[in-house]
Structure formats: C-alpha cells, structure tokens
Design a protein around this nucleic acid. Sequence first.
DNA 1: CTGTTAGCGCGTTCAC
DNA 2: GTGAACGCGCTAACAG
Lengths: 339, 339
Amino acid sequence: MSKHQSTIKEIAAALNVAISTVSRALSNDPRIGLRTRMRVNEMAKALHYIPNPAAKSLRKQDALSIGIVLPQLREEFFSLALNGIEDAFEGKGYNIFITQSRDKMEREAKATNYFLNNRVNGVIASISAETTDYQHFRELQEFGVPLVFFDRIPTNFPTHCVRSNVEDGVLKAMEYLSKKNIKNIALLNGPKTLGISQERLRGYLSALKVFNFKPTPGFIRYTDFSRENIDRIMTDIWFNTDEKPEAILAFNDYVALNAMQWCKKNGIKPNEDVFFVSFANLPITDYLDHPPAASLEQYAYLMGEKAAKLMISLLEDESVRYENNYQEIIMDTELVVHI
Amino acid sequence: MSKHQSTIKEIAAALNVAISTVSRALSNDPRIGLRTRMRVNEMAKALHYIPNPAAKSLRKQDALSIGIVLPQLREEFFSLALNGIEDAFEGKGYNIFITQSRDKMEREAKATNYFLNNRVNGVIASISAETTDYQHFRELQEFGVPLVFFDRIPTNFPTHCVRSNVEDGVLKAMEYLSKKNIKNIALLNGPKTLGISQERLRGYLSALKVFNFKPTPGFIRYTDFSRENIDRIMTDIWFNTDEKPEAILAFNDYVALNAMQWCKKNGIKPNEDVFFVSFANLPITDYLDHPPAASLEQYAYLMGEKAAKLMISLLEDESVRYENNYQEIIMDTELVVHI
DNA sequence: CTGTTAGCGCGTTCAC
DNA sequence: GTGAACGCGCTAACAG
C-alpha cells in the first residue's frame, strides 16, 4: 500500500498546535522553542510529511527556478554547456528546467511559454536552427523575465548574451590555412538563419581580402545539418563547380565530420586532398584517427558557466536589469591544430 | 517596462462578472454563454492573462508531470533515449522534468526527492554508476509513484523495467570472436555496482564454457569510466599479466574508444593486435575510421520510447500498478560488425 | 514563544 | 446562465 503524503495541517492536528507553529518550526524560525521544534520534526517524519512546492510558490509568488532551452542535447557542445550551467547554479537553490527545441521553432516557443506560465526567474537559451521570429522570447522580456543567450544568439534582438568571437576565430583558421599556402577555401556554413552563420560568413569574406584568398563562385554554402543535405552540397562543390577547394571551413565539428565521411566514400582523402577546419573542438573528436586538421575551441562548458553566472548576476542585482543596458560577453576562441 | 501577469480575478473585475464565470469561460464550460465567453477571452488577451499552473495543480492535486533521471546527457546513449521518451509523451499533456545524476548517487537522490515533492505522476530512471542504496527510489514506490527503469536497472529491486538482453548479447559477441578463432578474451567491464556489469560478467563466464575459451587471471576488470582508470587497467592487462588478450569485450563504446586510444598511444594496433567488441553501437562511432570491430546495437531511442510507453500504460491503467506485478521488457541486441 | 486570520490563484459545489 | 463562498497547502501579518 502506498504511503500518504501529509500536510502541515495534519501535523498540527496530531500535535494539537497551530498550523503556523508547524510551518515556523519546519522553516527553523528562531521564535519556536527547541522542544516544540523537535516534536514537530519527529511528527513530520512519522507522518511522511513532504512540503508542497506548488503551495509554497503560490504563496510566496516565487519558486526560484530557471528555464533552459537548448537545440539538441545530443550535440556534445550543448550537453557540456548544460553541465557548466548546472554547476554554476549549484547550491544557489534554483530549480533548473531543461528543454530541447530539437531545432524546431515550435518546440522552442512551447518551452518558453511553459516557462512564462510557470513564472521562472530567468531563461537561458541557445536558439533553434529554424528560429527567425523571436516573438516568444520578446514576450519573456516584456514580462520582465531576464534572458541570457549563448552561442546561438538572435540577430537584431537586444539581449544579454555570451558568444564566441567568431569572426576572429575564422581569421585564425584562415591564417592557419594561409601559412600552409592554401588559398582556395570553401565555407560549409550552418543555416542562414543563424547569426553565428552570418558571422562566419563575414569572417570568411574579410579573410579573403586580408590573406588574398581567391573567391570562387559556389564555395559559400549553407547546410541544415542533415547528412543528406551535407552530402548533396559536397557533391555539388566537388563535381559541379569549376574548381575544387583545397580546404573547407566547416560550421562545426559535426558538419566537418559528415563532410569528411562524404569524402571517404568518394575516394577523397580528408586533410590530404582537402583540408578541414571547423568550430567547437569537441572532446569526441579526440577519438578520431583523422579529426579535422584544426578546430576552434569554444569552451562549451565555460560558455554555459558564464551564461549562468551572468544570469545569476541579473537575478541578484535587479538594478542591472531594468536599464536598456545589455551585457555582451565575448569569448575568444583558440585554434587547436591536430595536424 | 514589463507587462503585468494578471489573474482571473482581474479579468472578472474588469468585466464586472464573477471570478467563477471567468474560470468557466476560460475552460470552455458549456454553461457559459457565447457572448460572455468571447468577452472574457478578449479581456484575457488584453490583460495578458497567463494561467498559473501552481495554483491549478494545488487545486486539482495533480499536475501531469513526469520526472526523468539519467546518468549523463553527454553520453549519446542517454540523450538518444531521452529523445525517445520525449517523443512518446508528445501530445499526452505531461511536463517532462529532465535531470542528470552525473553518476553521483547524491545528485540522483536529490532529483528523486525533488520529484517526490513536486508530486510527479511517474519517474523514469537509469541509475548512476555510484548507486548501491536504492532508498530514494524505494521511497517513490512507497508513495505510490510509478517507476520505470531502463538500461541501468537496480539489482534485487522489484520494479518495472526495460532492459537489453545483455547475456545473450555477450554470447553473440563471443561467438563472433570464436569464429575468428580468438580464444583469449578480456572483459573490460563497467562499475561492479551496476547490474548490467554483472550481466556482462555472467554472459562472459558462460561463454567461456560454451566456446571453450581460456580463462586468464586478471582478464576480468572493472572501470569507473574515467580515462585515467581505463588507462591504468589497460597497462595492467598488457604489461602485468602473464598473457596478452587477443580481444577485449568492452562495457560500451566509450570504454572501448578510451581503451583503443590507450592502444594507439602504446603502439598497439586496435582490431589488429587486439580486437575490440563493445555495447551500444552509438551513431558517433560512424565517424571513426577505426570503430570497435563489432558493437551490440541496443537501440537507445527505442529503449527510451518503450520505457515511456510502459510508463504511459501504468499511468492510464491504474489497475496494473497496485498488484505486485512488475513488467519487464527485454530487448534483443544485434551484433553490428564493422570489420 | 504561540495562535488567529487572511489570502496567494484557481476550480468547484451550491445556490439563485 | 451566473454568482458567492469555500478550500487546496502554505506563509506572513497581527495579536497576545
């Protein structure tokens, strides 16, 4: 048979004291005598008392909770960032609601609505690949819910955020290729909708000038991350373009790995016939015999941690929030050369 | 300035109707006239009304929510399983609370306590590597919270569960090695505390007999998953044991990959000098030039889905729950040969 | 030190 | 059709 979840009312009745006395005793109110406090605690245990957070948050109008919206937990980048977030909130007394949009705007909006309904104290997010309309995030802002984005930041949307210095990262990558005397480089970018794709593009375009690289038509491509799409693009770059690239700058490690797979299937040797450079430098690439030649470390865990700490500062110092004064933390990347 | 989150009370005041009328109108009670219902809905929108789930669940004594406890979201096995769980619950109206124990029993217990406090309708879990005491899960049971485990099941703890047929899987793996005329096989197992480690051991031991394999002292080892620990064990197996194994059966792909890394660093060629066979067959191994020679597919997504569907059946048919009649779903594995 | 009372937002009984 | 009143479990004023 299942136990009964009792309430302070039942404890009070059993002990013949007032409900408020029980409430105070359980919350260690100094006004309650040691003796009664002990009696209350014992009875609470005996009756299997479990505090009801719904009642508590209804009464206190605050439940100390944070909502997290991530694209895909499967991507190590985001699960690492999540660990950073969780660790930063450790001991702060907040409940962390984790959701994944699975790169669908609809799911993302559902999550933010849920957070709004549940009166979370703040939301940390990295937007989905599909998201072009930020109405659901704007709504959070309008209700005064502090919002911190990391990595995938909305464009033209003033907000607190933590992001990589992508353009600089691209320059580092291109410089590396330049030193190898490589001049003909394709950009296998992420979805056009993502700001960080646009930043990669800007970095790429300015690097073309800086290093005197050759712009080739058809060498700037956008993928939706699906394997088929990446395969199609690679085929296109390789067989339907006037020239073949000497190197490919990939949106991130997963995109690079998929493209490298395509190469292997088509008898092209990655990092010999064509160099690969990418973003993220995820731990899983450690296990590869042939990782991308170089990858830009983005410190996923640290990024999550920084986003969380920024959120905590917003939570603890309300004065920061209500000015139109958004904090932007820009993290440098580091080119990690594997070959 | 931030919007105000209004309540039905304010809507009622603005419209000069009773609170209960608003409540009924918003929940589409047929007794409310079309005209008033429309007026209420409009005013609700105008005042940015947002229903308060805390109040609702306090009143209704039920919030339709499910708690999930997973060891590490970073492990693709668990993030895939999570996707399966989420998809199975899609459209069912439940809120999914996701937590990760990070393989710490303390964090796991915190999560289950949180779920108990919040009166979740059910908990789906895969236990941490540290967990030996199941008190926190037992408590959930005692309060009548349905519990479904998958993959990492507690031992000697009657419960609903979904698990792989591990022993049979080990036999398949050993048969594969036997056909290659390999007879001297080490078991690089997971933590002793995990039941699925014990199952691997049982399968291993019985396979020794079935296939006439050679038992070698020091060839049965347990790792805590840390890289250092795996390195140490490998060194020990290789250099401090009378014989060298011809093959290593690894607890899962991650363990195999770490061990294979050790091999490479020590000039030993994986799958040439020593064969690797493992569990899980995770998608990430697709990217490897040299994956384990074979891996036992465990259908992570499907497993999560099955666990969720089992939970849904427990939720929808109360009669199933209160008999001491636990369902155990055993999934066959499939040996996927990469070499 | 402890009890009484009120009310957080909502759904529901009972009246009219 | 609609309204008044109560209570879910809890905290916080105000009393004593």
